[in-house]
């Protein structure tokens, strides 16, 4: 028997033992850690999901950063800066979580810039008024929280732990969005109109953030079996609608959906039809801001290349200097 054959057999034994342990951990609803054996598909699926999530945080900085220089009060400016900064921080933890699965951050960034990786299509809509900053916080971050709270219990340890911190910060973000809208809704008639217009434009896209209807969501089932996803897209969407119905009353604004109702039989909130064709179009790159967002990300990355090279060269020179001194 050749050495390769022995290696192959011990590999198989190792895989079989690893799979047993993995299945057990999943059955116990316990955590998988980076050094644990995991199926190749689990690794691949998580890398895709976590890196997409990281890209969404990073691309999501742009629409809001667009208003930092124009924020209408110094306090709002400070809060918005802190919020966009948090998003960079979320991107960092998530890329780090994804790196524990074996893909370096550079590769993920390159995939994003090459158009090979996706990010949440909500960020391809334009942020036209100050009220949009409120609507993004309230609706978009609100939807993100509904999606992400269950992810704190995701079976992959580093992802779940990153989500705990992210969710805490996201809940501040949602509150700041709500507060902006509340102030506008109680402001001048023009401010109130600005707030309603923003809610009208962001409502449907935020509902679509939960992903396609359950019957069209092919990856969901496997993801639920692996304890990554805990609730279906439609389940989460319905929960979110219920929350918004209550909160919009406090704002004194309206949801642009005459079909919203609570279905006593199913115990679920229902909403009007969503334009899934638009969702697919935006996802396919034909949204209002896809090209702009990608160009900005690419530009920042390319313009920063010389800085990253300088930092690496400096670190190398310093290491050499220390080695020589030792």
């Amino acid at each position: 028997m050749t050495t390769t054959a022995i290696d192959a057999r011990s590999r198989e034994d190792h895989d079989a033992a690893g799979k047993r342990q993995f299945d057990e951990l999943i059955a116990q609803d316990s955590r998988i850690e980076p050094r644990d054996w995991m199926p190749a598909d689990y690794r691949k699926s998580l890398t895709r999901q976590i890196s997409q999530h990281a890209h969404s945080e990073i691309i999501g900085m742009q629409p809001e950063a667009n208003w930092i220089t124009r924020a209408p009060s110094l306090k709002r400016k400070a809060v918005l800066m802190a919020k966009v900064q948090d998003e960079a921080g979320h991107g960092l933890y998530l890329y780090s979580a994804a790196e524990t699965l074996g893909t370096p951050r550079d590769r993920m960034t390159e995939d994003l810039i090459a158009g090979k990786a996706r990010y949440s299509s909500i960020f391809n809509y334009p942020v036209l008024t100050w009220a949009d900053i409120g609507a993004i916080g309230w609706l978009v971050d609100g939807a993100a929280i509904c999606n992400q709270v269950p992810l704190c219990r995701a079976s992959y340890g580093p992802y779940g732990r990153a989500m705990v911190r992210i969710c805490k910060e996201e809940s501040f973000h949602q509150r700041q969005g709500f507060e902006i809208l509340l102030e506008l809704a109680n402001g001048t008639p023009e401010q109130r109109a600005m707030a309603q217009d923003a809610v009208n434009r962001w409502y449907a896209p935020s509902l679509m953030m939960f992903g396609p209807p359950d019957e069209d969501s092919p990856n969901s089932q496997q993801s639920m079996l692996w304890n990554i996803k805990r609730f279906s897209n439609d389940e989460l969407r319905s929960r979110f609608v219920g929350m918004m119905v209550e909160q919009v009353r406090v704002l004194g604004l309206e949801l642009p959906d005459k079909d919203v109702r609570f279905n006593e039989e199913t115990g679920r909130w229902e909403h009007g039809p969503l334009d899934w064709n638009e969702f697919k179009e935006v996802l396919a790159g034909r949204g209002p801001c896809n090209a702009q967002r990608m160009e900005r990300r690419r530009e920042a990355h390319e313009d920063g290349a010389w800085v990253r090279e300088a930092a690496a060269a400096y670190a190398e020179k310093q290491a050499l200097k220390h080695a020589q001194a030792a």
Partner: peptide
């Protein structure tokens, strides 16, 4: 913010 050479620098 959103244009820095590295995410760490955005922060």
């Amino acid at each position: 913010i959103s244009r820095a050479p590295e995410l760490e620098e955005d922060v």
